[in-house]
């Protein structure tokens, strides 16, 4: 049932992010050394096509100043006062380890940065009892998302989504799980570069998540599959970013 819902949603609402302006580009990141406590430094990046400077600090995976980033984000109306750039929210900054950058750090120049707040997608300590997720317990799909080009779990994002899934699965007792990895293999030109994920990344992502599920739920029957179509979904946890939705794993619980 849920499978049908997800598929139908993807067809009728291909995640256009409505009227929101989205940007995608590749550039070197700039670190602005603001100081409002821990993790308060700013990340900026300039779109080479427009020359506009964006504040990309809200990405769940931050840049490495030694490498270019692929920026994908939604232009926000939030003021640029924290960091000195147009705020992208939601935003992803995928680190491109094959593209070195000269590291560049700006002084704070009066910008305060952002005081760290715990992301909404965070895992509570193991010592805290998890509430039993409500039913109905029927076929259901749980997506998990990745940075461009890799299968590494994104801290306080994909781990949270997996834990939500495993809590539900532990309560629902499905017969088995089908873990399908997706990769965005269709080339797209971004800032003059043809960008596509390798086809074998789909299987790698599936195996990464399957291994984590085996550890979380020993004894659970798990099968893996790969899909290189790069299909999009309208799932809310992709944060209205179509490109994010293409880089995923789906955990399908079957009864």
């Amino acid at each position: 049932m849920f499978r049908f819902f997800l598929t139908a949603a993807a067809l009728v609402a291909p995640l256009s992010a409505a009227a929101a302006e989205t940007v995608r580009f590749i550039a070197c990141p700039i670190y602005r050394d603001t100081d409002s406590g821990k993790k308060s430094g700013c990340w900026l990046s300039d779109d080479p096509a427009t020359g506009l400077r964006y504040d990309v600090s809200l990405s769940p995976h931050k840049p490495d100043w030694n490498y270019a980033v692929m920026v994908e984000g939604i232009v926000s109306a939030a003021p640029s006062t924290p960091c000195g750039g147009t705020v992208l929210d939601a935003v992803r900054t995928s680190r491109l380890y094959d593209t070195p950058c000269t590291r560049h750090m700006l002084p704070a120049e009066g910008f305060p940065g952002r005081r760290f707040v715990l992301p909404k997608r965070n895992i509570t300590p193991s010592s805290v009892a998890r509430p039993v997720p409500p039913g109905p317990y029927a076929e259901r799909v749980f997506p998990v998302y990745f940075e461009f080009g890799n299968d590494f779990l994104v801290y306080q994002y994909s781990d949270y989504l997996i834990e939500q899934a495993s809590n539900w699965i532990n309560a629902a007792h499905p017969k088995k799980l089908i873990v399908t990895g997706f990769a965005a293999t269709q080339p797209e030109v971004i800032s003059g570069r043809s960008m596509a994920e390798p086809a074998d990344l789909a299987a790698l992502r599936a195996e990464t998540i399957a291994e984590t599920l085996r550890r979380l739920m020993p004894g659970m029957a798990i099968e893996t599959a790969a899909d290189t179509s790069g299909s999009e979904t309208a799932d809310k946890d992709a944060d209205r970013l179509p490109s994010q939705s293409r880089r995923r794993v789906e955990i399908r619980a079957l009864f």
Partner: peptide, 19 residues
Amino acid sequence: TDTAGINSRIGFGNPVRNS
């Protein structure tokens, strides 16, 4: 800065301000 296990592959950023 440049500290595997903090600045990579986990997404805290390189560099990251902390104590």
